[in-house]
Design a protein around this nucleic acid. Structure first.
Lengths: 181, 181
DNA sequence: CTAAACTTTCAGGAAATAATGAAAATAAGA
DNA sequence: TCTTATTTTCATTATTTCCTGAAAGTTTAG
């Protein structure tokens, strides 16, 4: 077994390694600001900038994390559809590679967030509206108006995002968006 | 001092109270899925569905949280621009009220997230590109391509969001978006 | 069937984050 | 100025979230 990162020490390689580390670290921080587990974001970052598929052990080594941690978060990423597992014939272990196309990545994230968070939020709002809509007290009327406004807004947003995401195949939307700038 | 919530027990009032509680609780959960402190989201929810401005003490009582907690999170909300403090003449204490217009709320959140997270992320990406763009190794080329793609995408997204948010005053964008559904 | 290679699970511990409560600071009225 | 109402801070404590490592499970080759 060779230790890549400790034997390959040319200045260029070091510089690349530093840049990669920076990216992985910062991407982890960014992820956690958006409610994503730091390690999951870091693994995702690592896979995104690695051209070949990686094994659990490689991820563990690169990120200095335990097997359990690496495993769980890789599974989670597969669950999100951001990473797929690859099995090479004749080999027993599992490899993982990330979707590299940024637009596809974006669409996947939107699709999942819609499903996991926007839809449930809309349901909560509808439930709240149902519970209070027939009440006449001023506070109740205010409550109903506010939740209804919020609900309509979120349904609109959900619809817009669906439109955007549905165009995943074509490159038209990203192209059009560039001109909207 | 009267205890509103424990003396006013008509079935309607109870039902409203339950709906409000549900909303506050769930909104807190939703917030934390998006990287926002649960309590902050709950206070925001509470202020959104309360027609009048509230004092720190009212928020404390309603949410059963400590003064320090209420205080800090109210300040944070004011910092986000989602809540403003109101000082009534002749009164010494501070009142807080939330922006109720959903579209304005949305624009405020976008504007802040752009400032706090999207911009810094773009800067990180640019820094990573700078560090590695002159390297020739295959891994380095892949790294640069990937970070550059990501960077371009985020700049595009940032631009689109700016466009959307800049139209805050007018009601044209929300109106147009409805038709995009 | 057995062993080796690899994956999965999860109880317990560690780290990160948030909340409390009391003391200190500030501001306003008398 | 002094007193009181109100706000702010922050060390301590509590809670939540995450990670580890080892044991159990699974699969494949021989």
């Amino acid at each position: 077994m060779e230790k890549r990162s400790t034997t390959d020490q040319s200045p260029e390689a070091l510089r690349l390694e530093a840049a990669r580390d920076e990216f992985v670290t910062q991407w982890g921080a960014i992820g956690s600001a958006w409610g994503i587990n730091r390690t999951m974001a870091q693994i995702h970052a690592l896979l995104i900038i690695t051209p070949r598929a990686m094994t659990t052990d490689e991820v563990m080594e690169e990120l200095r994390i335990s097997r359990g941690n690496a495993h769980m978060n890789l599974r989670e990423l597969v669950g999100w559809g951001l990473v797929r597992s690859v099995i090479r014939k004749g080999e027993r272990k599992e490899y993982f590679e990330a979707e590299k196309d940024v637009w596809k990545m974006f669409c996947t994230i939107i699709r999942e967030r819609k499903r996991r968070e926007i839809r449930p939020a809309i349901n909560v709002l509808k439930d709240c509206i149902d519970r209070a809509q027939d009440l006449k007290a001023p506070d109740a009327v205010a409550f109903t108006k506010q939740t209804r406004d919020l609900c309509e807004f979120m349904e609109m947003a959900d619809g817009v995002l669906s439109k955007v995401v549905r165009s995943e195949q074509s490159t038209i939307v990203p192209w059009a968006l560039k001109f909207l700038k």
